[in-house]
């Protein structure tokens, strides 16, 4: 049964990724603007253009190009970036850790902040405090992530400059990374200056990404908590002498978290989508920032590689959400 589920999962994942690959491949080729024109100086002859096109294989039909590219992908070769002249796989995997660290940190901030606000809201239900929290989270939600980025830059980068507004780590820090997971590696190797510098650079972009999601979690989780708090088993817990806070944390939270989890799964993929613009804003050297450069330069192999990696990332996240469902809900553990 489990084996069958895994197999089905793998097959659907493969189909999804293939579909994404086809769409991206065709889209970047039919969209206006081409990489050859970007590479040649003004005044290049049509002969020069034709030669360079042939060199990169752009003279062949889209179908032929796709078959060649797909053949490479299956062997682990995602092509070479036109602008950076390095293998796409190397470039993309080099940037992935930065984006993973950033979005994971944003996710934890969102869960912590949203969860806390939801519990407080449920504890203070039907009071002015709940209304206040609702209004606040509604306001927070209506401001998009990049605008939060600008607000934070203004607040903590300009008016009260305590955080770093650009890059991923202080360039003066001398540290030879073996992986690109700065926080993770800094922690393991006991270099807390590395960790602190990375955190100082990550805090603002992470907060920008986290705030809208935190507001969403706060609202939905609070609503679910309020529903669960009307259930008989929470009433019974009160009769048994547990305080309201204890009833919320011990009896209600896990039940209320189930529907919230579905939202977090979907919204987390949007959050990762949000890294594209937020990374740009903070000159954070992640995948999103690289994606914008690739699009501006019409770096077709790089665009394809990045999009495919994002798609793979989303399917992995969906898988993790499903797994955590079974972890939280014992009714799903059988069969």
């Amino acid at each position: 049964m489990l084996l069958k589920n895994v197999l089905v999962r793998l097959i659907t994942t493969a189909i999804t990724l293939f579909g994404v690959a086809v769409v991206v491949f065709v889209l970047v080729r039919v969209a206006p603007g081409n990489p050859i024109a970007m590479m040649l100086p003004p005044g290049a002859t049509s002969e020069d253009i034709a030669n360079l096109s042939a060199l990169y294989g752009f003279d062949k039909s889209i179908f032929e190009q796709f078959v060649i590219w797909l053949g490479g992908v299956l062997r682990g070769d995602f092509g070479t970036s036109i602008t950076l002249r390095q293998p796409v796989a190397e470039l993309v995997l080099g940037r992935l850790p930065a984006t993973l660290e950033l979005s994971t940190m944003a996710l934890f901030i969102a869960l912590g902040l949203g969860g806390t606000v939801a519990v407080i809201g449920a504890r203070k239900r039907d009071t002015a405090t709940e209304v206040g929290l609702d209004l606040t989270s509604g306001a927070v939600l209506s401001i998009p992530d990049f605008l939060w980025g600008l607000i934070f830059v203004l607040l903590f980068g300009v008016l009260w400059p305590i955080l770093s507004i650009s890059g991923r780590i202080d360039p003066r820090i001398e540290f030879d990374f073996t992986t690109n997971f700065y926080i993770f590696e800094g922690l393991i190797r006991g270099r807390f200056d590395v960790v602190m510098s990375t955190l100082s650079h990550m805090l603002m972009p992470a907060m920008s990404l986290a705030l809208p999601l935190a507001a969403m979690i706060a609202q939905l989780l609070k609503q679910n908590l309020k529903e669960v708090l009307n259930q008989d088993y929470t009433t019974l817990a009160r009769v048994r002498g547990f305080s309201e806070t204890s009833v919320i944390l011990r009896e209600a939270l896990r039940n209320a978290a189930l529907p919230t989890l579905a939202l977090v799964g979907v919204q987390f993929t949007f959050l990762i989508g949000g890294t594209v613009i937020v990374e740009r804003l903070f000159a954070f050297e992640g995948l999103g920032n690289m994606a914008i450069d690739a699009v501006i330069n019409r770096d077709l192999p790089l665009i394809q590689g990045i999009v495919l990696l994002f798609a793979a990332l989303f399917t992995v996240i969906n898988l993790l959400v499903d797994l955590s469902y079974t972890l939280l809900n014992p009714r799903l553990r059988h069969g």
Binding site: Y233, T235, L236, R240, E251, R254, P330, R331
Partner: peptide, 23 residues
């Protein structure tokens, strides 16, 4: 709350909803 809890208990009406499903 604690006085009442220490001296009394409740047998609820619906056993299907009175136990926490995830514990």
């Amino acid at each position: 709350r604690s006085t009442v809890a220490k001296m009394s208990a409740l047998i609820p009406q619906d056993p299907l909803t009175a136990l926490n499903p995830v514990r």
